[in-house]
Design a protein around this nucleic acid. Structure first.
Lengths: 392, 392
DNA sequence: TATTTTTGTTCTCGGTGAGAACATAACATG
DNA sequence: CATGTTATGTTCTCACCGAGAACAAAAATA
């Protein structure tokens, strides 16, 4: 009783109602774990089979959906599966790591195919490479582009990626004007969105996802969407002082959680200078040594895991998630030190929350989380009444 | 491009479309800063004047809206103001403080009238008093009840209020079954909701509100709604370790922000035992002495303000609010130490956020924030297609 | 071969909001 | 005081929608 967000209540005519239902059908096809038929779509959408038939007919006419004979499934009249139309919209998704990039194509329903990858010199010149790759692979079906970036993107277009030395890089300027509609977002957020749509947090009303690499970043997930904030730069949970570090962070603040969780913290434990690039190998070796019984490596991993748990507990007090998923190094920490993470989390929970702590789970989308999430935000731009009105 | 929350897309027929528009009109009347006319409602809703006339006619017939002659406003045919129907729904709102309670009635549009107040003995017996007061004042118009509580309410009905010694108090049990549909929520969250709907955060897409009394609690506000969490117990930002306190909090965790912000922190500064009741007077006297130049009182207020700002900075990194509003002691701290709060906030912001920090503003709803918020959640339950379908 | 099950197709019905045209009632101007 | 202007209200027609029922079709089962 009493929902968190006031429902969006747009102006609507009968024609708008039709578009509304066409979008619902496309969204249902896109999100369904297994292919839909007309009758199953009608049931899922609580509409008549006549209405479903009309919607499917119009979307096929518009080159958005297609029907192919379904495998025989027992008694009853044979039916068809609803699949992406051969001329239907395709989204490109790009994932920009700090020294490499990947471009993939995704169609309605989520099937993904990697088109191109490359390395880059850590300058904004990477966007020229991506632009070129998009141009090379684009067809008339290309409808939207999603881009995952390893850092915050203020207002959706101003990049601040401190470990690449980028400050106030303007994405629109870098990409130029001849790309399809483009949405860029932070890679940790997109990884979280991927878990919410197609991974460990599917169906979760309130969730948190954290990606741990050199440091930790994440996103608050609400009803299948990611909380972006006023300027699109929410999610920097790693830059909250949750574990009492006396050190100054490279973000400009003292005491960030990121100083205690992630590869940088492992490196610092051994007196190494935190940095990027070769650090991942270092973290891998620390984990291996800890597995092999090296006490100092074990201590470093213990502290990382405890710090992770402490922060998760604090965030659970504030945001009350049903589940928390982890990716990157978070999966490694969880597999090796689940009890320690959960114990530290529990210690950070207010007394009355301890009987029912949030579930802490491994993300299931894996390393393609940012790419998968970029695909989802591209399709979010497609599966709208506005886009469909222009297409019909 | 790409909204945070996936839009809710319900099944809809022509009849549903009508109900949809009737709800939109009622919501518009409820939320408008000044009374609407038919023509202004039509403009605001982007519908024809004929449709507006039909909607108004049906809602008048249903006893939900009424038209009274509007004051003459220049040239043009005289029109009418849309006002609550004399037989229209009324919401009751109750605010339960730790030793007193208030009951008020609110009609569509937000006009509020206090019906009853009382003191209570800090036991759940207060609910019998409220039940009795509701019964005494109820008429056939009573449609919903909202209740503000000074503590978390798990799953909307299980109360945990540590400073009253309540643990696992079941609200449904306490209230009985013969009240109208009831929504209970935390007072800090309801105060935030009040600011979002009718106060300092009106129109803000992403906001934070904090209420400071003995400690600090708040809520994340998104699109006019409050983020509740999986079990309705989000918002305990005060129980995150944002300011490095070594102390153990009464919530069961070490290092909570609430140990450094609020009346309890002021009391502790002077070696007083944190507690409730008389503490507010103590806080008032500390503020007055600080105003009068007492150096120790000034130091205590300085530290409180600095701790407040530090925590706000950390939360701004994580949640990226456009604005942050404060109530209770927060208004006092802001008025006296705005520079200190803002400076500490800025120091806690990541470097690239400092050019555009979130606005920090005084809440404008005032002490009736929780009551006003309780009224809003009660009306959220009324202004729905489901409620309207039953009513028509 | 007949029956059952599931899905597809056709038809009619009643709902909606839009837009245009006209009507009404005020105020401003000459 | 008459006329024109402005803003709103009312009426009418139109074209859109989805629902529900009935019937048709194509499979599997008995």
């Amino acid at each position: 009783m009493g929902s968190a967000i006031l429902p969006h209540m747009p102006t609507m005519t009968s024609a708008d109602l039709r578009i509304h239902n066409q979008v619902r059908l496309l969204r249902a096809v896109h999100d369904a774990p297994e292919p839909l038929t007309r009758a199953s779509a009608a049931r899922r959408m609580a509409i008549g089979r006549n209405t479903a038939a009309a919607l499917v007919g119009e979307l096929e006419e518009a080159g958005l959906l297609h029907e192919v004979p379904a495998e025989s499934g027992g008694r009853g009249r044979p039916t068809t599966r609803l699949v992406p139309h051969p001329a239907g919209p395709i989204a490109f998704a790009a994932d920009v790591r700090e020294d490499s990039w990947t471009l993939a194509a995704i169609e309605l329903g989520g099937a993904m195919r990697v088109l191109d990858t490359g390395e880059h010199d850590r300058t904004p010149g990477v966007f020229a490479e991506i632009r070129e790759a998009v141009r090379r692979h684009a067809t008339g079906r290309l409808a939207a582009l999603g881009i995952a970036m390893a850092g915050p993107i203020r207002d959706g277009r101003r990049l601040h990626i401190s470990h690449l030395g980028w400050d106030e890089v303007d994405l629109d300027e870098q990409l130029g004007a001849d790309l399809p509609p483009t949405a860029a977002d932070n890679d940790a957020r997109l990884a979280g969105l991927a878990e919410a749509r197609r991974g460990a947090l599917r169906g979760v009303g309130t969730g948190l996802h954290f990606h741990i690499d050199f440091d930790i970043g994440g996103t608050l997930l609400l009803g299948g969407g990611a909380q972006r904030g006023a300027h699109n730069i929410a999610g920097e949970f790693g830059h909250m002082p949750l574990t009492g570090s006396p050190l100054r962070c490279m973000c400009g603040v003292q005491g960030c959680w990121s100083l205690d969780v992630g590869t940088n913290a492992l490196m610092r434990h051994f007196g190494e200078e935190p940095g990027y690039g070769a650090g991942r190998g270092f973290a891998r070796r620390v984990l291996e040594r800890a597995d092999d019984g090296d006490p100092e490596a074990a201590r470093a991993v213990d502290r990382n895991a405890a710090a992770l748990g402490r922060g998760l507990g604090a965030l659970a007090n504030a945001l009350d998630p049903e589940a928390i998923s982890l990716s990157g190094l978070g999966v490694d920490l969880l597999r090796r030190r689940r009890e320690r993470v959960e114990e530290a989390c529990r210690a950070g929970l207010m007394e009355f929350r301890r009987a029912e702590p949030p579930r802490i789970v491994e993300g299931t989308v894996g390393e393609i989380g940012p790419l998968r999430g970029a695909a989802e935000v591209a399709f979010d731009a497609i599966l709208t009444p506005e886009w469909l009105r222009r297409r019909l």
